[in-house]
Design a protein around this nucleic acid. Structure first.
Lengths: 131, 131
DNA sequence: TGTTTGTTCTACATGGAATAGAACAAATGT
DNA sequence: ACATTTGTTCTATTCCATGTAGAACAAACA
């Protein structure tokens, strides 16, 4: 997992970390059942504070991505099929609505959006286990 | 345009407003060439501060959605076809990547994502001019 | 000529973000 | 059994974003 943190960004560090861990899992660099590094080790590796990594882990837990076992580690959750009544589904739906609305207003055609979605999905799913 | 602001949300007011104006334009309730209300009038209408609305307008301008003419108004930009080298395209691409990564990790299948995208797009584009 | 417009400035209060250090009990390693 | 590492929970501090408030100004408008 290659993590790149930009301290000067307007996006909070813990959020940058959250998103990049998310992409890492989606790409298959991290798989279900595996554990994330300890908050102290990860923090030392990234050159950030322990509490910042901790906040990121709890953000991921709140979103249903990982499960934090006290005194043990942060385990990546199994990716089961998701239903429409799942609260996580609703959140994705809302986030998707915001992005698509902005895309449409900027002049994206429906076909362009579908094309972009397909290419991004392929990029993320395409090369499993690649570092 | 029906705007609903939740002051207690963890999403900043100016961002809630930005997103809802965005959706309003996407839906066709506001069309290119038309103007948004004055910052003072809109603020009074929503029960928020003038500066908050002002920040929202400038956020929309930064994203290429509206054009602010000093001493005049906030005009909705024309929605021309967008190219891949457009910086706004790149931003949408990045936002899309984040949402799709989260969706995949949560267990969305590729078909489910395409289905969600199609339904959201249809919902936004489906009923133009409907208040 | 008033009124409204967006802009700019100061000011203040609140809370998030990030860092830092310390302490604790539980889990792990040897 | 002992030492280390683990996540958690405190306190504390600094810096910045958010939101509100009030005032002033020049330009546009009626």
């Amino acid at each position: 997992m290659i993590i790149q943190i930009e301290p000067q960004s307007d996006i909070p560090i813990y959020m940058q970390l959250t998103n990049q861990i998310l992409e890492g899992i989606a790409r298959g660099a991290l798989r279900q059942g595996e554990s994330l590094p300890s908050v102290r080790a990860f923090a030392a590796d990234l050159g950030v504070n322990m509490h910042t990594v901790n906040k990121s882990y709890h953000e991921l837990e709140k979103r249903g991505i990982i499960r934090i076992v006290p005194k043990s580690g942060a385990v990546i959750q199994s990716q089961e099929a998701i239903e429409k009544n799942n609260p996580h589904y609703q959140r994705i739906q809302q986030e998707m609505k915001t992005v698509i609305a902005e895309a449409l207003v900027l002049g994206f055609k429906s076909e362009q959006i579908e094309e972009l979605v397909a290419s991004v999905t392929k990029e993320l799913k395409g090369k499993p286990r690649l570092k």
